[in-house]
């Protein structure tokens, strides 16, 4: 489904851009731990987004009730993934948990900004010669 793929690439670019800005800010004003936290949070956010898109593409091919259950089970699997990521982030002393939360939210912020300000790339228009 190519619209889905285009959207994913666009969101990925937006998250990368936002990350560069945030990581630079963190390095200037805070320490390395915070920057690492943002990187980890955004990375897992993007992976989560990718897994979500795969599961939804499979879910729409099922019947409605089965699709609902399938999406619910996939959500639980992704929840466990988040559990592991945050557990590792909390246990390692070189990652700040609060900035990991900020990194996790960056996917959502990028989605909202792209859609509210309509930053979708314009499709190239073909000019047609009028034949009269």
């Amino acid at each position: 489904m190519k619209e889905v793929k285009e959207t994913k690439i666009l969101v990925l670019k937006g998250v990368a851009l936002l990350n560069i800005v945030l990581i630079l800010l963190m390095l200037i004003f805070f320490d390395l731990r915070s920057a690492y936290g943002i990187f980890i949070g955004s990375l897992i956010g993007v992976i989560n987004f990718h897994l979500l898109s795969l599961s939804l593409q499979k879910a729409v091919k099922l019947e409605p009730t089965k699709a609902g259950f399938y999406a619910f089970i996939q959500y639980i699997i992704r929840y466990i993934l988040w559990f592991l990521v945050f557990y590792i982030a909390l246990k390692r002393p070189d990652v700040n948990i609060l900035t990991t939360i900020v990194g996790m939210l960056s996917v959502k912020v990028v989605i909202l900004v792209i859609n509210v300000f309509n930053l979708y790339p314009l499709k190239r228009k073909f000019s047609r010669k009028e034949v009269s």
Binding site: M1, K2, E3, V4, T7, N48, F49, L52, S53, L56, Q57, V60, A71, Y75, R78, Y79, W82, M104, L105, V107, K108, I111, L112, N115
Partner: peptide, 19 residues
Amino acid sequence: GDIVRVMLLGAAVAETTGI
């Protein structure tokens, strides 16, 4: 394609409160 795209954006936004 369009349906899954809209659903993906909506579901990605809905996830975070549980997290």
